[in-house]
Design a protein around this nucleic acid. Structure first.
Length: 260
DNA sequence: AAGTACGTCAACCGCTCCACA
DNA sequence: ATGTGGAGCGGTTGACGTACT
């Protein structure tokens, strides 16, 4: 008989069944066995771990240990201020959906974020003048700032669309004039490719369940980090938000913000 | 030095969802 | 349509370390 299977014992009237699983902190040897199991069999089928790896742990325990501690892509160390701001924003948006929030923070687990929230924000939230309130206020201002930017972007987008259409018309005319020189270029393909140049960007942060797009490109994210770090530092130092300072950085934002 | 309070985080528990037979 | 097992999720607990008295 192997651990994890039902242990049967004879107790007078008949057979009773008893699950005997190890609980509590994991040992280095158990970790080693689990890592070896995943290396050989991949993730999943957690209930087979006990049988195939010789662990005296149930499947849930094994999965949790792997997901929260042993996974090689986990990011160790303290939550950064940037990650903290993301957690705040996403919690404002989604509430206690820790796994959803964790998906936007590569290398962090839902358990880690949940613990972080409870220790750093939930208790503090009882006091109105503390970090949570300040953070939320910063977030509100950030969102307002974003709204302003969106409006400006809409205007810019409209202008650029006009310019784009103008350019396309010019190119079309050029192609028609030179169709004898480049007959293999179809107009439709040209338009598609031009469009793709503006929209094909890699991104994973802030992917929203409703399909909306919010600050989603990697390019934008890195630049946005710089921008918001700066803004938030201003806020931290002076205790209030400087619109003029923010406005001076609009140019930077406009450089990197994609059209959603 | 000893006792206590508090913070942190790994791990457990109960529930829900989903795929599949 | 229904039962079952696997997987995932959020809430909670408990052990441990550290700061404070």
């Amino acid at each position: 008989m192997y651990w994890g299977e039902v242990m049967a014992g004879h107790m007078g009237r008949g057979v009773i069944e008893e699950q005997v699983w190890r609980k509590g902190p994991w040992t280095a040897e158990e970790d080693r066995l689990l890592v070896e199991y995943v290396r050989l069999h991949g993730e999943g089928r957690w209930n087979s771990v006990a049988r195939l790896a010789g662990l005296k742990r149930n499947g849930k325990s094994c999965r949790l240990r792997w997901v929260n501690y042993l996974r090689p892509d986990l990011k160790r160390g303290q939550i950064t201020s940037q990650e903290e701001s993301i957690i705040l924003e996403l919690h404002t948006r989604w509430g206690n959906r820790w796994s959803t929030i964790a998906r936007s923070l590569p290398g962090r687990t839902d358990n880690e974020i949940k613990n972080y929230w409870r220790t750093h924000f939930k208790k503090k939230a009882k006091r109105p003048s503390d970090a949570v309130e300040k953070a939320r206020n910063r977030l509100l201002r950030k969102q307002q700032f974003h709204q302003q930017q969106q409006q400006q972007l809409q205007q810019q987008k409209a202008q650029q669309q006009l310019q784009f259409n103008f350019d396309v018309k010019g190119i079309m005319a050029f192609l028609e004039d030179n169709s004898h020189k480049a007959p293999y270029i179809s107009q439709s393909r040209l338009v598609v490719n031009m469009h793709q140049n503006t929209t094909e960007e890699q991104g994973y942060l802030y992917s929203m369940p409703n399909g909306n797009c919010s600050a989603s490109s990697a390019l934008e994210t890195s630049a946005e980090e710089v921008l918001w770090d700066g803004l938030w530092n201003i806020d931290d130092v002076h205790g209030n938000f400087s619109v003029a300072s923010a406005a001076s950085k609009v140019g930077l934002y406009n450089l990197v913000a994609p059209f959603c």
